[in-house]
Structure formats: C-alpha cells, structure tokens
Design a binder for these strands. Structure first.
Lengths: 124, 124, 124, 124
DNA sequence: GTGGTCTAGACCACG
DNA sequence: GTGGTCTAGACCACA
C-alpha cells in the first residue's frame, strides 16, 4: 500500500503523508472512507505510532482527512483541501513545467499527458 | 541576483542551488556563461563559502553547470542535464498535475498555463 | 434543534453542551422552558445517553439550567449563571479583542459588531 | 514569563503556545526578536523539549513566528498571521460577546473595554 | 548549538 | 479500541 525508503532524504512521516495523500487522490480512498488506525498502520509499516500520527496530523492540516478522537480518521471531500495547499501545488506545477520546457519538452506533449491524466480520473 | 530568505524553511544551500538553477532556466545565464566564484558569491551574500560550494557541487551533479579547475564554473547546455534530474522533474510534474486535476482543475486550463510558459521562454 | 458534526474536533458532549447553551443565549429557550429529557434527546441524536447526561451536568454546573428530580431540566434565568463562567467569558472576550486589535482591527469597528449583536438580542 | 498549570484541561503545549502568542501580541516580543531556544525553554519550564517544539510548530503554522533550522525561532510581523487564525479569532470574539450581552453586559460598556485595549496598544 | 526527526513506552479522554 | 498527549533519550543536518 505504502512503501518506505529509509535512504530517502525525506523524513518518514512525509513519505507516509505523501503516500496516504496519493491514496486519496487516486480514488483508492473515497471521501468518508476510514483510514487505517494509527496503531495498525504503525505495526504494518514497522515504525513508531508517533510518526504515523504526525503524518495524519499533517494531512488533517492540509484538509485531506479529518479525525474523530476515539473513532479514527476519514478521507475528506476534496473541497476541504486547504487554500494554502492548493497554491503550493500550483507553484510546484509551474516550476516543474517551466524547467521541463527549458529542457526541451513542448507544451503540446505535456498537455497530452494532462489529458491522459484527466481521462484516467474520469474512468476511476 | 539571488535573494536569500532566512525565514524560508529550506536550508540556505538549497536556496542558493535553486536560485542558480532558476537563473539558468530563465535564460539569465546562457550556456557557457561564467558563474561568480564561490568566494565572491559568499561575500556578496554574506554567508559561508562552504554553503555556496555545496550548492555548486549539487548543481554540477545534476548537470546544470560544469567546473574547470583554476578557471571557474560555467552554465552547461541543457543537453548535459542528468537523466535522474529529468525523471525526477517528470515525476513532480505528473504528481502535481494529477492532484490539481483531482482538485477540480481541467487539463484545458493547465494547458493554457503551459503555453504561456512556452511563449515566455521563446521571447526571452 | 442541535446539529452534531462528527468531523468537529470537539468531543460530542461538548458539541451538545455548546449547542444547548446557544439555544438559551439566543432565546430559543426562555428561562423556565423545559429541555428535552436525556433519553429522548439521546434517541433523537442517536448517541449514548451518558453523553447527553454529561452535557446536562456541565451546563447545570455553569448555571444555565437546573434539574428537578422526576420533573426534568429547565432553562435557568441568566442571573443564575456562575461567576466562574462569567469571568471565563470576560477573559476570552478580552484576549480575543486584544489580539484582533493587534492584528489591525480598530475598537470602532469591533464596537459596531457589538451594537449589532445587542440589536439582534432586543428584537428576538 | 510563561506559567503552566498542570490541572488545566488544556494540554501543556497549548498553554505554552498561548503564552508565547501573548508575548508577541503584547509587544514583549517585537517582529524579528529571537525566541528562546527549544532546549532552553524546555529546561526553564522543566518539560520535555518535544512539547516545546510542538508549541513552536503550532505557532509557526499560525504565522506568529518563523523558524530557521540551526538558528532559532523569531517573532513574525503581524501581517504574516494566517487567515484561518484570524477568522477563528473573529468567531471566538463574536460568540463571547453575544453571551456576555445575554448575561446583561451592554455594548457600550464592552466598547469601553475595547477602547482601553486600543489605547494601551498605542502606548506600548 | 540549533532545530528536525524518530523511537519506545506510558497514561488519559472519549464513546 | 481509538486518537491525543507527554516523557526520556537518541541521532542527524545545518551554518
């Protein structure tokens, strides 16, 4: 489900956070779906529960999930995602695109990728 | 030339690295142009030369510049950029795009941004 | 009457408590009015009676309602409200006001809000 | 400087956070001023550094301070404070005001308090 | 020396 | 059983 790379420069909790976010984005988790409990995920990945908790806290701050103490964490509807996260994403997108274009990519071929991503999204 | 933001969460050497890379990408530095020496840049930015050196090393590893012993560092042609950096960029682009689309952006409007970036590139 | 939000970080009993208190403050419940029984409210909201009971206990301690054994709970006159609750509220008010002013709000514009709140109160 | 109350329902890190925020608001810390290091504050208050760190993280997310790894944390200008925090504050203010008015306070006397707070702010 | 991360283990509130 | 908090102690990257 989520793969960890201890040689990665990114801290573990960010890898967990990004992995979970990806599950939400790809539709593997629909809004309202319950995420694994902090403890169960910790034992699955063989890391400390505090580290998982931190990933969950971070995702909650971004608006990708919400937590009910004593109940668990649940995927949030995409409308809940933070404005801050949205603009951060926009910035990442533009910077990467600008550099790819400098490297020789054309807007046309990148656009084709976008359309492909959009199609895949619809069929999911 | 490069502005440091001590309030940025990124470490200084990453800010220097990203700043220099940006100069290359935007065309402020053309292939073959000489970059400032490590020492001069260190005194300009009032930071430790080791920090600058680290940024240069990192950029050289990515292929954005090359160093000639006793001569200095020079902006590399775009064809020298690492395959690793290219695929990393590609990954960042796709992930960001997928998430933006999930958040409601359309491929059409993102494509418009790409075309704008491409135009700006040409005119520079 | 009272809406529960399971995505709220506040525990359920606090949401019930705050919701009931709000009914009293807004005048939806006038002093002397009978509140729903613990059991009926529990079944209406589909939650555990213990949770409702806890909210009632808390409100009774603050002085917003009183309970007559065998009769039920009733909204109390505003003069019954605890000194402790009053000073707590005063503290919250001052702290929030001081911070809003620090952030750039003017006493004049905040005062306008107060007058508006007072007006609404009269017409209810 | 900051007083902790272990009998308080609020967790320690929130007490630390609120205390530090108060120092910023009252002007005891001006924008750019360095806050105590995580370790020194932890030993002063006789609590775990992780708990202090959490308070700092929270304040940084709200925009009251910024952190430079390896350097320390510094008070931010008030313009950096989050929109989210601002609206949260506004909500707290209105709720408290509405309840105080129900309890018999008049908009006029509350306004006098606001003016007093504004004056004190100016003289600081 | 500073903040950032991680672990192991503990206790509590909630429902 | 769940998440929330806290402690004690450790190692690392940064400048």
């Amino acid at each position: 489900m989520i793969s960890l790379n201890y040689r990665d420069a990114r801290p573990i909790y960010e890898q967990v956070r990004d992995g979970l976010r990806r599950l939400v984005i790809t539709g593997a988790l629909s809004p309202g779906d319950k995420l694994p409990s902090v403890r169960s995920m910790a034992s699955t990945l063989a890391i400390n529960p505090n580290t998982i908790q931190r990933a969950y806290d971070s995702l909650e701050a971004e608006g990708y999930l919400y937590t009910v103490a004593g109940k668990g964490s649940f995927a949030a509807p995409r409308s809940d995602v933070n404005e801050r996260r949205r603009s951060e994403l926009q910035g990442v997108f533009e910077q990467a695109a600008a550099e790819l274009i400098w490297l020789g990519a054309t807007a046309a071929e990148l656009s084709r990728r976008l359309t492909a991503l959009e199609e895949r999204r619809k069929t999911t």
